[in-house]
Design a protein around this nucleic acid. Structure first.
Lengths: 162, 162
DNA sequence: GATGAAATACTCCGTTT
DNA sequence: AAACGGAGTATTTCATC
């Protein structure tokens, strides 16, 4: 199970990161191997956990969730029940897209999606501030996305731009 | 161009959000339509911009970028050249995965990926702090990811759990 | 890793409701 | 307008080298 990625592995990852529905035959041309060998490598990359999944990306605007906000959340430091309850609530809230436990001035950083500011306000008061142990929140509405989440970048293989 | 999504559209989106490489025939079984009608709907969803792409997700750990950090960046408010220069530099930095212009106490929120804390320090001093107009940064290293980015959630269609 | 054959999936086109 | 069905093409999978 050697998990060193050679140039051809990186090309496979590079192209599938940009078009996950690309046929193996097309991918094989980019990589310079037979479709078979390419599929074999891809299977190995998935099995070894280098590729964790293939996902369609949906337009927030088209789904009526054009407002993105980041929310810093500070919890009471009473006991670990508070953290467990918070974690469970986070999993059940469809408005929350990401939740990171961070080191620094607060406990959690949330990325949330909403129809508009009114919907965000409702989320804040009806969902977030009702959670037990939430002491303080700071909201940062996103005005513009300069760079979209594309996953961790590989050291781009030469000649992969085509 | 009616952009109302019916139950079958939502099922298509739901399943492709979780497995973008699913064959149309399999997808059609989930949706309860013929592969033909399913493919037609998918083409329409892509054409109308509801689906913006299909992407393989890669494991940051497997790629040697196991440290995630969020960085708040505050710029000097001199002129718009500063913002343009910052935007360009953000696009060229492979360590930056997301960059959002936000309202609130600072100007930009970055999501970055690094091998380890030493690599983050190098990024901070060699890349971020060298950018013209950067006045102040605050770093929040991620300790745990409670909920991963899966894109905006649809109102989950009933019976889509299989 | 490559090749060739078999199974499967996709696209195009005509037809139906 | 939307879905179905069939024929031809492309792709994936499997066995073999």
């Amino acid at each position: 199970m050697s998990d060193a990625l050679d140039r051809q592995d990186r090309l496979i990852l590079h192209h599938l990161q940009r078009d996950a529905r690309m046929p193996l035959t097309t991918l094989a041309e980019h990589v310079g191997l037979s479709p078979n060998a390419t599929g074999e490598r891809l299977r190995r990359l998935v099995r070894d956990g280098v590729v964790t999944g293939f996902h369609a990306r949906l337009s927030p605007e088209a789904l009526g969730r054009g407002l993105t906000a980041f929310v810093e959340v500070k919890l009471e430091r009473t006991d670990s029940d508070v953290f467990a309850a918070f974690a469970e609530a986070v999993r059940d809230a469809p408005d929350i897209e990401e939740c990171h436990m961070v080191a620094g001035g607060f406990d959690y950083l949330l990325k949330t999606r909403h129809r508009d500011m009114a919907a965000y306000r409702a989320f804040l008061s009806d969902t977030l501030l009702r959670l037990p142990g939430v002491r303080e929140t700071h909201t940062y509405p996103v005005m513009e996305e300069l760079r979209a989440d594309f996953g961790p970048m590989l050291p781009a293989p030469r000649g992969a731009g085509g």
